[in-house]
């Protein structure tokens, strides 16, 4: 009917009333439907938008995830990956198989099968591989409660029972026995603290250091 009006002609063969009437009825029906549909659609869109922003708010900005679903009060993320830059602008990254985040306390994320690259300082990156850990998003602290290993980019390998990692600060502390293996030396101790971005390493408790003869030969005569 609208078109009809546009071309401004009322053809004779179209009896006024009958056709127009039917069109009017369908139009008003459409309007009636839209009257209900439109708000519903608007509502759904806003709901979706809110949902996304809520999920977004829970997840750190620099987090990529393969997929996320909500299971019994926890956001379960598959293959989460976090990356960022620490104070010195050196990039750090962390990936896990799965991450579980409690809706009530979104900052704490439990991680499974973690691999992290933690910059200790400009020259040394520590690669962490662990079964599980709890990551506090607000302070970038990684709490490893199960045994794990750290391989320094310099060829040194350290194995731990547990530890607290300050990823951004480049600090680490373990209050349980540690074993460090380098090409020509090995160190075993009851506890370890790495501070000042890896520049100070402190072992405490029954420290045993073993230096291979090849290390001395280099310095020998």
């Amino acid at each position: 009917m609208l078109n009809r009006v546009d071309n401004g002609t009322m053809t004779a063969d179209n009896p006024p009333g009958g056709d127009a009437y039917r069109l009017a009825v369908s139009h008003s029906a459409r309007v009636k439907r839209l009257k209900v549909l439109l708000p519903v659609i608007a509502f759904v869109i806003s709901l979706a938008f809110a949902g996304v922003s809520v999920v977004r708010a829970y997840l750190p900005e620099n987090l990529q995830i393969a997929s996320a679903k909500i299971e019994n009060g926890k956001v379960v993320m598959e293959k989460p990956a976090i990356a960022g830059r620490n104070g010195d602008g050196i990039s750090y990254s962390m990936r896990a198989e799965r991450a579980l985040q409690d809706i009530k306390n979104p900052n704490i994320i439990a991680l499974e099968t973690i691999t992290a690259a933690v910059p200790l300082n400009e020259k040394t990156i520590a690669r962490v591989e662990a079964l599980s850990g709890v990551f506090d998003r607000s302070s970038d602290l990684l709490d490893m409660d199960k045994p794990f290993t750290i391989k320094l980019s310099t060829g040194i390998e350290a194995s731990f029972q547990s530890a607290h990692l300050d990823i951004k600060g480049g600090k680490m502390e373990s209050t349980e026995p540690v074993a460090i293996k380098a090409q020509e030396a090995s160190i075993v101790a009851q506890s370890l603290k790495i501070t000042d971005k890896g520049r100070i390493i402190t072992f405490e408790g029954a420290v045993r250091v073993n230096i291979e003869p090849s290390a001395i030969r280099k310095t020998g005569n």
């Binding site: 160190i187 101790a189 100070i200 390493i201 072992f203 029954a206 420290v207 250091v209 230096i211 291979e212």
Partner: peptide
């Protein structure tokens, strides 16, 4: 002798890179 390993024991060890 530089053909024998050295063992060092102590209560603590602090390595200061600086």
């Amino acid at each position: 002798s530089n053909d024998q390993p050295i063992q060092i024991e102590s209560d603590a060890l602090e390595i200061r890179e600086q």
